[in-house]
Nucleic acid binder design. Structure first.
Lengths: 351, 351
DNA sequence: CTGAAAGCGCTAACAC
DNA sequence: GTGTTAGCGCTTTCAG
C-alpha cells in the first residue's frame, strides 16, 4: 500500500477527484465492510472497536468522502428537508418568517427548500407538487388558496403540514396553524381609536389573496365599529395607484365633516402607499387625520415623528410553526394545533 | 378488471395511499414496461404510439403517481437544485437577492435550497458541506470568508460557483462574481459632497465581516477624500450602541468647527442607527449636518423630507448571478465572469 | 465485533 | 415500438 505504484494526487490541495467517492471505496481502503462504515457514519457504534473507528475516520478525511444525501434518503425514506412556500418572498414578512423557521430547523439539522407561490393558486399547486416529489419531511405554507380540498395531495402523501399567517377553510385538526392575533388586535385598536375621539375609520386594504390575514382584520373592525357607532369606510387598493388613493382620501375628508378621521392601513406595504398619497395631498398626521398601520418591522418609527403601529411578529410565527412541525415529524403532535402569536402595539405620534 | 374483487378506495377523494407508488406499478397497471414509462416521463417519446402515451398518462393520474426526485437524481447525477448561502437572511438585501435568483431559476425548473451562514466562516463551511452532500447543481454564495482556499471543496466537487455582493481574494476566473459598483459609486459620491461644499465626511460603518462590500467603499472614500482635500472620519459601529454613536457624532460636531460635515452611512441598517442617534442629539438634516446612505430599498424616501440615498439593486445582482450560473451548468461559461451592477443615486433632502 | 447481500426507485445501454 | 436488466450509493436485516 505504501508503495502504491499508481500516480495519484491525494496530497495536492486542489485535488481533482474525478470520480465520486462512495462508501464502498472507503470500506475497501479502510479494510472493513461497507456495513461498518455505514454504522460509523450514523453514529451506530454499538461495540465497534476504537481502532476501526479511527481508521475509518482517517480514510474518510483522506479520500474526502462525502455521503450522498440522495442515496441515503432513498433507503431511509427521510430527506431531512422541509419545504416552505410563501406568497411573496420579496416581502419583509416572508423574510422574517423564514428567519424564524430557519432558527428552529437548522439546529435540528433540517435543510429548507424555499419556494415562492407568487400569491397564485396554480403556482402554489406546482410548488407543492415539486416539494412532494422531493419527498420533503414536512411542509410549511403561507397559503394562497382558501379551501383545504386543494391541499389533499399533501395529506395523502402523509406529509406533516403547517399553515402560517393566513386562513384556510375546513382545515383538519391534524394540520398546524400559526397566525397573528388578527381579530383581537383589530378589535382593541378600534376601541382605542374610539377612545381617542375618532368617529370615522378609513381602512386601506388590498385583498389580492382570498386567504389574506386582512380579512379577519376587516371583520373585527367592521363589527367593532358598528358596536361603537363609528363610521367606517374601506378602500380596497387592488389595482389603484397612489393618485387614485389620494383622490379617495380627499373625497373622504370632504364627507367627514366634523368627524375626526383615522386612516388604518392593513399591512406594511400599504403604509408606504398611504404616505405617498398623503404627500401628494399635503396631508399631515395627526394634524389632518390620524394614521395607524399594521406592520412587520419598525421602520415606521422613523417616519415623521413616528407612525402608530400594530407590529406583527413574523419571526415568532415562523419559529412556532417550525417547532410544531418538527414535533409532528417525530410523531409527537403538539397539544394545540392552533397557535396564535400576539401582535404588539407600538405607540407613535400619528394619532 | 372492472369486477375487481379487492376493496380499494381509489375513488375516494381523500385516498390514503399507504405504499408509495413506483414507476414499476405504473408500468404494470398500464401493461407496459418501466422503460416505456420512464421514456414517457422524460418526454422521450421517440416513436411511442399515442395509445401508449394516453394509457400511461391515465394510469399516472389514477394512481396519483409522483416520480421520486432522489431516485432520479441518483441515476442522472443532477438534482436541479441550486444551493444559496447568504450572510444574514433577515436582511432586506438577502431577501431581494433571493428574489432575483428565484426569478431566473424557477422558470428553468431549478429549486433553491437557502441556507444562512450567519456571517460566520465556520457556519458557512458547514452550509457548503451540507449542500455538496445534497449534490446541488450549482452554488451561489454571499461569502463570509476572505480567501478562496476555503472554497476549494466546491471546486473539487466540480460544482459551478458564483459569489455575490462581497469580495474573495484569489478567486479563480472560473468563478462568477457579481457585485455593486461599490468603488465607483463611492468616488462619485465624494466628489458630489465636495461639490456641495462639504469639507468633512463622517463614514459610519460596521465591518463585522472581513469580506464586506463596505471595504471597497471605504477605500474609495478614503482615496477620493485625500485627493480632494476633505477631512475624513470613520466610525466603526462594531459593538457600539446608539448612545455610543450619538456621543461620537457630538464629539465630531464639536471638532468640525466651521467645516460643513456630511454623515455617510454605508448600509441600510446603519442608517436606522444614525437616525436614532441623531434623534437623541436633536440633530436635524440637512440643517446641522448632511446625511447620505447606501441602502437596498427606498424606505428612506419617507423619512423626514427624504434621505439622500445610493441605492443598490440586489434583485438584479441575484438575477445576473442566477443567469451566469445556469450558463456554467450548461457548460456555456459566460463571456465575462466579473459582473458589476450599477447603483442608483436617489436624491433626497438631507444634503 | 463485523460482513454479505437485498433492495430503495429510477435511467439507459442494449436487445428484439 | 417496446422490453430486460444492470447499476446509482446507501441502510439494514440476518448471519456469523
Amino acid at each position: 500500500m505504501s508503495s502504491d505504484p499508481i500516480r495519484h494526487d491525494r496530497h495536492t490541495k486542489a485535488m481533482n477527484s474525478r470520480k465520486t467517492i462512495t462508501i464502498k471505496e472507503v470500506a475497501k481502503v479502510a479494510g472493513v465492510s461497507v456495513t461498518t462504515v455505514s454504522r460509523y457514519l450514523n453514529g451506530n457504534l454499538g461495540k465497534m472497536s476504537v481502532a476501526t473507528q479511527q481508521k475509518i475516520q482517517q480514510v474518510i478525511r483522506d479520500l474526502n468522502y462525502r455521503p450522498s444525501a440522495a442515496a441515503k434518503s432513498m433507503r431511509s425514506d427521510s430527506t431531512h428537508i422541509i419545504g416552505v412556500i410563501v406568497g411573496d418572498i420579496s416581502n419583509v414578512f416572508a423574510s422574517m418568517l423564514f428567519t424564524g423557521m430557519y432558527k428552529t430547523l437548522q439546529p435540528r439539522n433540517y435543510s429548507v427548500m424555499l419556494l415562492n407561490a407568487d400569491n397564485d393558486a396554480d403556482a402554489e399547486r406546482e410548488c407543492v407538487e415539486k416539494l412532494l416529489q422531493q419527498n420533503v419531511d414536512g411542509l410549511i405554507i403561507q397559503p394562497s388558496r382558501g379551501n383545504f380540498e386543494d391541499y389533499y395531495p399533501i395529506v395523502n402523501a402523509h406529509t406533516p403540514l403547517a399553515f402560517v399567517d393566513r386562513y384556510v377553510d375546513a382545515t383538519p385538526s391534524s394540520v398546524i396553524h400559526v397566525t397573528s392575533d388578527n381579530y383581537e388586535a383589530s378589535r382593541r385598536m378600534c376601541e382605542e381609536l374610539a377612545g381617542k375621539g375618532y368617529r370615522h375609520i378609513v381602512v386601506v386594504s388590498t385583498t389580492t389573496v382570498g386567504t389574506s390575514a386582512q380579512i379577519p382584520r376587516i371583520h373585527a373592525i367592521t363589527e367593532t365599529a358598528r358596536r361603537l357607532g363609528l363610521r367606517l369606510s374601506v378602500l380596497d387598493l387592488a389595482g389603484g395607484d397612489d393618485a387614485w388613493l389620494a383622490d379617495a382620501l380627499r373625497a373622504i375628508r370632504t364627507t367627514s365633516g366634523e368627524d375626526r378621521t383615522a386612516v388604518v392601513s392593513l399591512m406594511g406595504p400599504l403604509l408606504l402607499r398611504v404616505l405617498a398619497a398623503s404627500r401628494m395631498l399635503g396631508l399631515e398626521f395627526p394634524r389632518d387625520m390620524g394614521l395607524l398601520s399594521f406592520d412587520d418591522w419598525e421602520w415606521g418609527e422613523y417616519v415623521g415623528q413616528g407612525i402608530d403601529l400594530i407590529l406583527q411578529d413574523p419571526e415568532t410565527i415562523g419559529r412556532r410553526a417550525g417547532e410544531a412541525l418538527l414535533a409532528m415529524i417525530r410523531k409527537q403532535p403538539p397539544d394545540d394545533n392552533e397557535i396564535v402569536v400576539p401582535t404588539k402595539r407600538i405607540p407613535g405620534r400619528s394619532l
